[in-house]
Structure formats: structure tokens, C-alpha cells
Design a protein around this nucleic acid. Structure first.
Length: 641
RNA sequence: GCCCAUAUAGCUCAGGGGUAGAGCACUUCCUUGGUAAGGAAGAGGUCAUCGGUUCAAUUCCGAUUAUGGGCUCCA
């Protein structure tokens, strides 16, 4: 006699066990048709799940987030079914739901081609149209192993062998295809249909590069055709923000074959770079950092002592001359310790904050390179804080505030926080790792931040907080970092004299806000779609004449604005105003000043923005002070207001 | 590094076993035009590199390099 309570508080009594579908049907045929599953006492279940005792029930349809999850998961199965029908020799492995869609990994004797993808998608459509019921059944572990061995599904059988023998597993069957799956799934394939297979990729079995390479097919799936279309449109729009594309369009930088993973900065890109650097320099100074500069080429013996040669060696560029072996620095930390080590330090000097815009080189795997986001030569806004154990907490807290204020100035609001803990390959005692990890976790908690732990992802010398930002298509990039290190100072003989006259090793905090200029500027470009805030724009003001008669006036105006510290350039070409406006707009120049006879006569300038707002005629003084305010406020007080 | 794909003019891209084409950009000339493309003419390519097949390769095949999408790894 189950009594079922619905989300609105209403209750329904039944004389026998009922399925979620039955309850939905009882409420209305429309709901029954739309029901994909339901939450029974908060647990997501198939629509066919029987409810035998009193329960809270929330029916899930495609309008719910969980409904979308069911659709994506079931679409992954639908794809596996289609693949098995078309290529019976292919073996299935796993097929989870991911953001916006799903993937499924297959093992097959030959690579899938784009034509195969079309065929699979077509077959999926046919199977969906048939509205094949998806049925759940349960099976013991050993029987499951025998079942998949019988199908020659070696990977599935391997997964199941790792599951405890006494566990009951669930199978989902749709026609001729049966998959091991925890579920739940939609009731039948008729609920699927708004999907598209997106791309083919390789992926290691169980994510281990020592294992076989499988073929992964990525797909996207939505509740409606409209949602699918909107998603595809969003992707198209996002691709226009790609920093590689914009970098070329705006002539900011380039990369070329002779220097893979190293950026050639062009004049406009370098202007942005310098604006960012100058900003960071000022902010760091204000935060009590001392800026230093250390060599890029350092004898290998230092890297051996620091542990980098051992743990990081494959990634280092070695340079041999005569009988000495040097390496391009992959990190700045050992060099900063050398600066700390000059002279005898007192506890009174701590915390000592050293900062460097440090040029680093890492011989990254060729497949890891990505535009200017992941390169082989890059400059970190690196800093190391030498302090006592007691000072860690406060330094971390101050740093996190500093980082937030910087990100805010650049226009970033969404930051992802992660704590990466001890990796297998590491230096230092477990005790110091315990202390370091706790210090960072405490710092995040003290700020009330929502963070996620990444076990085993820390640097070899210490755990790290990662502050990450997203690119235009949602890929997450680590930018800022804060790392507590109890081991490097000891390895490199750093010490200070404490209040008792004893020598002690300091704690070293490794920290960066941008991470690297290259990556950060890449993200900046994508975030702003190339429309850099005025304070960062390579050209802030473009002066456009209407006819040759205003040339001299424009040149004078350009000089006046430049003298005021503005990046102003004139476009005096013998072209029509429309063309010059168009090019300045496409070039994302924030402000255009149009100068014709009228302006010369009135002594005002006509102002237009890259977003096509006409600000009308303005006094030059008003314009200059307005621009200066917009720059100083980092865009918070725009000229337009 | 691994899997798949790609590499043709400065850029975006067509093309195809008999040594190449468009649009934009560029140069010159005409045009002096008031807020997103004025007109005409011209110039521009060892078809990524190295090999192989072929009478003939930019085109087919292989290798290399780079790039793109992933995986693994990382700021």
C-alpha cells in the first residue's frame, strides 16, 4: 500500500506496487508520455522502477536537468548499438555523459572515418524512430563476465572482473544490443533524436598512456531540435572568439614551424603584453614584492640539486657548450633561492617576497601545444614568498585577495578553484606534505571558496591551489597558482637566523596570478572577443579624416592625444570614411574620432565606438578626461556614461 | 609521445595524374567622398619538406615537420 508524495506535497495511495510510469499515467497521459524517469526518495531511477513502499517521487522529463542527463546517457548507448550493428567486430568499452553531450570509446581494427560517422548517425536516427524499449535486468558478477566473454567483449569483461564477486550488476537491453550499465535510462529510444556526432578522437583505455589507444566518438544530445540548434550556433559563435583566429586578424602574434611553441609577438600584441606587464609590476610593488631578474641558462648541477633534473628532466631543454652542460630554466624557483641565499637572512626580513617576469622553457610533448595557451617558451609572473610556517596562512589569504582583485580588473568573474595534492613522483617527507596540503585547504576554506580536490596532481615539490579560467569553448586553463613548499629551500641550503639566533630553513610559497603572459593573454583575447578593454587596447583612439584637407589637423590631434599618454593613431589614407570606419571597427579600436570641416570649424571631435554607438561631437578636453577615467578605472567608468 | 585529420597566393578557401584558380589584401591610376566595403588596371604560388610509383606527381603512396581535434602530460 504505497503512499506516494509528489513535489507539490500532494499524496496518492496505491493498493499495489506501482512504477513511476504508472504514477505519471495516473496524473495524466501527457506526463506519462514525457516521463523519462524519476527521483524516488532523491535517487534517480528508470521510469519502469517499481515503488513498493511509501516514497517521495519527482517525475523527470526532458525539461529537467536530470532528464537531459538521461537523454545523453541513453544516446551514448544508442550510438554503441548503431556501431555494433554496422561494425559487429567493434568492441564497446565505456560511454559516459559529459558537458553538453556524451562520448563512447570503441576498439576496432581500423580507424573510423567521417563517412563512418555519418553512417552511424544515420543508423542512430533509424533506431530512435523505432522507439525500441530499453529494458533493465540484473545479473551476478560471474554471470556478467561469462556473458560478455561470450560476446567477445574483452574490455567489458575486464571492467566487470574488477567489480567484487558478490555485487549484483544491471544490464540494459535494447533489441539486439545489451550493455553493462548502472543506468538509469530513458524508457525507449523514441525519446532520443536531437543529437549530432561531433568528432572522432583517440583515447587511451582507462586513461593510461601505456594502454591501447581506443577510438572515441563525441556526440551532443538535447531535449529538442531547438536546443540542439542553439547549441551548434553557440559553438559557431564561440569559435569566432578563438585567440588564434583573432591573433591573426588583429596582427597580434604568430607562430611558425621553425620555433614550435614559441610566440612571435607583433607590435599590437606586444603592446597588450606590455600593458599587462606594467600593470602587474605596479600591483606587485604595491603588494610588497621586490622585482628581480635571474638567468635563463643555468648549469645543470643546480637543476640536479633542486630535483628538477630528476623529476622534470625530459621536459628541459639542455644546452651544451665546451665541457659544460646547461639547461634553459623550466621554472624560476631555484634561481630565486639563489637570490635569497646571498647574504645572511634574518627572520626580521620575512616574509620576503621576490617576483620575476621569468622566461621559462619546457620541452612539452608536441601534441600538448595549443596556440599561445600551451607553449614551449613562456613568461611567468612568478613570485616566491620566503616566510616562516606561522606566516603561511596570512600570506595565502593576502595572495588570494590580490589574485581576485587582479582578475576583476581584467574582467574575469568566473574562477575555478582546485587543490592538487601529492603526486606519486615527489620530493619531501609525508609530514611536510601533510602540513602543506592542510595550509592550502585551510586558506581556501577561510575564504569560503568552493573548491575541488585533484588527488595526485600536485607539483613534485609541493601541493598547489590552481586558479583556472575558461576559454571560448569551455576548456579550463590553469592560470594562477599558490604552492606551499617545505622541501626546496632545504635542498638548496636556504636558511635564515631566527629570534633565538638559530638557523632555520624558510618555507617557500610559489605563486603566480596570470600563470604565464602567453596563456593569460590568450584567454583575455577569447574572453573579450578581441575587444580589449580601453586600458589594454593596442590602439585606443583612431583619428579618421574625411578628406585630405584635414590631414594636418589630424596629425596635430594625434600628437596632442599621444602627449596625454593615449595610444592614438591617425588613418589618413585617401579612402572613404565608410571604409575607414569599417576597418577600425573590425580592428576592435575602441574609439574613432571623425574629423571633417565641421569639426575643425567647431573645434570638437565626432566620437564613435567600435560597438557602433555615435557619441556625437565632444570637446577635446571632455574626451581626454573621459578616456583617462575609463583607463584608470579599468573600464568600470566608460566614456559612454 | 599516442590516435585521427589537415598543409595550394599575405589571408580565407576552390581545384585536380599533363607544371594552377576565386574573393579579400597588395601596387598603380582615377576618385576628395560625412560614420561598416567607390571604380579600373596590375603584380603575386618550386601547390610544407624529402623520397617512391609513373612517360609525366602539386594531385597517388611513404616518411618527416608543423598545425587542428582529442588522449596522456602541464602555466
Amino acid at each position: 500500500m504505497p503512499t506516494i508524495t509528489l513535489p507539490d506535497g500532494s499524496q496518492r495511495d496505491y493498493s499495489n506496487a506501482v512504477s513511476i510510469y504508472d504514477v505519471a499515467l495516473d496524473i495524466g497521459p501527457g506526463l506519462a508520455k514525457a516521463a523519462l524517469g524519476g527521483h524516488i526518495d532523491g535517487v534517480l531511477c528508470d521510469a519502469s522502477t517499481l515503488i513498493e513502499s511509501d516514497a517521495q517521487l519527482a517525475i523527470v522529463t526532458s525539461r529537467d536537468e536530470d532528464g537531459l542527463h538521461l537523454i545523453r546517457h541513453s544516446t551514448a548507448h544508442l550510438m554503441a548499438q548503431a556501431v555494433k550493428q554496422l561494425y559487429p567486430e567493434a568492441q564497446v568499452t565505456i560511454g559516459p555523459v559529459i558537458e553538453d553531450g556524451f562520448y563512447y570509446d570503441f576498439s576496432y581494427e581500423r580507424p573510423f572515418t567521417p563517412d563512418d560517422l555519418d553512417a552511424i548517425e544515420k543508423r542512430m536516427g533509424e533506431l530512435a524512430k523505432k522507439a525500441i524499449p530499453i529494458e533493465r535486468s540484473e545479473i551476478g558478477r560471474d554471470d556478467a563476465v561469462a556473458f560478455f566473454d561470450g560476446l567477445s567483449e574483452d574490455y567489458k569483461a575486464e571492467i566487470i572482473r574488477d567489480i567484487p564477486a558478490d555485487e549484483i550488476l544491471s544490464l540494459y537491453k535494447q533489441d539486439d544490443f545489451t550493455d553493462l550499465c548502472r543506468g538509469p535510462h530513458v524508457p525507449n529510444t523514441g525519446h532520443l533524436g536531437h543529437f549530432k556526432l561531433m568528432k572522432l578522437a583517440g583515447a587511451y583505455w582507462r586513461g593510461d598512456s601505456d594502454n591501447a589507444m581506443l577510438q572515441r566518438i563525441y556526440g551532443t544530445a538535447w531535449a529538442s531540435k531547438k536546443d540542439l540548434k542553439a547549441y551548434l550556433h553557440r559553438l559557431e559563435e564561440a569559435e569566432k572568439r578563438d585567440h588564434r583566429k583573432i591573433g591573426k586578424q588583429l596582427d597580434l602574434f604568430h607562430l611558425q614551424e621553425e620555433a614550435p611553441g614559441m610566440v612571435f609577438w607583433h607590435a599590437d600584441g606586444w603592446t597588450i603584453y606590455q600593458a599587462v606587464e606594467q600593470y602587474m609590476r605596479e600591483r606587485q610593488k604595491e603588494q610588497g614584492y621586490k622585482e628581480i631578474r635571474t638567468p635563463q641558462l643555468v648549469d645543470m648541477s643546480l637543476w640536479e640539486k633542486s630535483g628538477h633534473a630528476d623529476k622534470f628532466g625530459d621536459d628541459m631543454f639542455a644546452v651544451s657548450t665546451d665541457d659544460r652542460k646547461f639547461a634553459l630554466k623550466p621554472m624560476n624557483c631555484p634561481c630565486h633561492v639563489q637570490v635569497f641565499n646571498q647574504g645572511l637572512r634574518s627572520y626580521r626580513e620575512l616574509p620576503l617576497r621576490l617576483a620575476e617576469f621569468g622566461s621559462c622553457h619546457r620541452n612539452e610533448l608536441s601534441g600538448a601545444l595549443h596556440g599561445i595557451m600551451r607553449v614551449r617558451g613562456f613568461v611567468q609572473d612568478d613570485g616566491h614568498i620566503f616566510c616562516t610556517e606561522q606566516q603561511i596562512q596570512e600570506e595565502c589569504a593576502t595572495f588570494i585577495d590580490f589574485l581576485h582583485s587582479v582578475y576583476d580588473d581584467f574582467g574575469f568573474t568566473e574562477v575555478i578553484y582546485r587543490l592538487s595534492t601529492r603526486p606519486a613522483n615527489r620530493v619531501g617527507s609525508d609530514e611536510s606534505w601533510d602540513k602543506s596540503e592542510k595550509a592550502l585547504a585551510d586558506a581556501l576554506d577561510a575564504k569560503g571558496l568552493d573548491w575541488q580536490e585533484l588527488p595526485g596532481e600536485g607539483a613534485f615539490y609541493g601541493p598547489k591551489i590552481e586558479f583556472s579560467l575558461k576559454d571560448c569553448i569551455g576548456r579550463v586553463w590553469q592560470c594562477g597558482t599558490m604552492q606551499v613548499d617545505f622541501s626546496m629551500p632545504g635542498r638548496l641550503d636556504a636558511n635564515f637566523v631566527d629570534a633565538n639566533g638559530e638557523r632555520q630553513a624558510p618555507v617557500m610559497l610559489h605563486r603566480a596570478i596570470l600563470g604565464s603572459f602567453e596563456r593569460f593573454i590568450g584567454i583575455l583575447i577569447e574572453n573579450h572577443e578581441g575587444k580589449m578593454p580601453l586600458w589594454l587596447a593596442p590602439t585606443q583612439v583612431r583619428i579618421i579624416n574625411i578628406t585630405d584637407k584635414q590631414q594636418d589637423y589630424c596629425k596635430n590631434l594625434e600628437k596632442t592625444l599621444s602627449d596625454q599618454g593615449l595610444r592614438a593613431h591617425s588613418d589618413l589614407r585617401n579612402e572613404k570614411i565608410g571604409l575607414k570606419i569599417r576597418e577600425a571597427t573590425l580592428g576592435r579600436v575602441p574609439y574613432m574620432l571623425v574629423i571633417g570641416d565641421k569639426e575643425i570649424e567647431s573645434g570638437k571631435v565626432s566620437v564613435r565606438t567600435r560597438d557602433a554607438s555615435e557619441l556625437g561631437p565632444m570637446d577635446l578636453d571632455t574626451l581626454v578626461s573621459g578616456l583617462k577615467l575609463e583607463i584608470a578605472s579599468r573600464g568600470r567608468d566608460p566614456l559612454e556614461d
